[in-house]
Design a protein around this nucleic acid. Sequence first.
DNA 1: CGATCGGTTGAAATCCGTCAACGCCCGTGG
DNA 2: CCACGGGCGTTGACGGATTTCAACCGATCG
Lengths: 247, 247
Amino acid sequence: MADDRQLGLEQFLRRLMVRSRLSAAQQQAIRSLPGRPEHLRAGHDVIVPGEHTDESCTVVRGLMSRFDMILDGGRQTVALYLPGEMCDLHSVPVPTSGWGLETLTETTVLFVPHEALRALTHDASLALALWRDTTVDGSVLAKWVANMGRKQAVARVAHLLCELGVRMEQLGLGARTAFALPVTQAQMAEAAGMTSVHLNRTLKTLADAGVSFTRGTVRIADWQATAHLAEFDPAYLLLPEGKQPSV
Amino acid sequence: MADDRQLGLEQFLRRLMVRSRLSAAQQQAIRSLPGRPEHLRAGHDVIVPGEHTDESCTVVRGLMSRFDMILDGGRQTVALYLPGEMCDLHSVPVPTSGWGLETLTETTVLFVPHEALRALTHDASLALALWRDTTVDGSVLAKWVANMGRKQAVARVAHLLCELGVRMEQLGLGARTAFALPVTQAQMAEAAGMTSVHLNRTLKTLADAGVSFTRGTVRIADWQATAHLAEFDPAYLLLPEGKQPSV
DNA sequence: CGATCGGTTGAAATCCGTCAACGCCCGTGG
DNA sequence: CCACGGGCGTTGACGGATTTCAACCGATCG
């Protein structure tokens, strides 16, 4: 539908405004961005690693992953994107992406030309807002590095679920303790940096701790305990409480 | 010395210009940034995780690491910073850093107030250049996630050494096949996401492949073979060959 | 000369990947 | 209606990779 452009931009704007103060005119500039919505099946590669692109895409509905490819054909998910998030915002300053982008579920995306996004940077506050948005991405990546490097499977998976819970809740897509995540165990294993077999066993262990992931739904019975188990501290998600400075 | 400010800014400018075209006036704006140089011993924590800061810092001489802390007191290095790189550029849009910053060797840093950096963003091209610089950081982080997630010790360490080789070479600090890296094995283990004991054994294995790391010097006898072993493709470092677009 | 730090090594325990098989569900086609 | 096949989840057994614990050695420094 044609409304997907409006919807996608509205969600993107809302995400920006979580961390950045924007004037009415600046908000309007976001809402007026051009965009081409597209509806995609699960498992579709939007961008193949190494491909050059001149548009970014935001998730309208569904779930996407940015991944790197290993020689043996295996994939490692390096970032997950939820509705309202611009997967490829970093390609505005650097259009040659070494990463692939794929849909994990049936997903509606909105393609926005780089040219239009670059034009926004003539407004210093908007430039800062966009820059800030990719910084959040970087912060999440850094946390993922720390998790992969130092934690073992149970804590790593728990951390991933906590992170997704908070992000979902922030987007109004459920509670951090109960939200839909319609992905396969194999897909989740790619994000957690482990085998699907081992993820399966890990989920079993987590079930004893009151964390379940069945039929596409995550439930966390005891948030405090799980967050502690995962050593999860949401600070790195850079959520509100005292907005960030503007220019 | 007072010249450290000039030197640091000049190196930072050079780094920016690897990927961004800047006019004479824009270059001058970088060179005119205020800055407070400081000389620090090895192992000094410049920023403690969670601390708020209103300046960024660039490495003038030496080596720094950005790290995350685990409950048991262990640290995971999430990024390494070489001379000319601005460790904390991402703190310009988001001044509350969840990360710590420490010197790995004796290091000279230059602190630059956020205010001055934010002022630069009124020039859209400079804003894009700074944004692009943090994007490179993010790209490296993503690659680290992929390495941690999917590769085992030998390939992971080899990849780290290849990356540092290329980055060092780019900065004129040696050849990718022979460069100084005066860090301890424990420090390198923190970056590679493994125990110092296992790193030690891994280095031994790598020695058979012609990769040595002794007395603070890395030597890679057969670059091709090592890059292949590590599945190292420098594309993610976003080096020149066709500069990035400006506004 | 003792103390400390960084590097090295061995042995045991643990985590995780691999291989292989099985069951379930569901859609498809006979 | 049933047979078949494929995707997905589950489980067991095995082996390899990595951590942990502990000890030792050499160099450096007070």
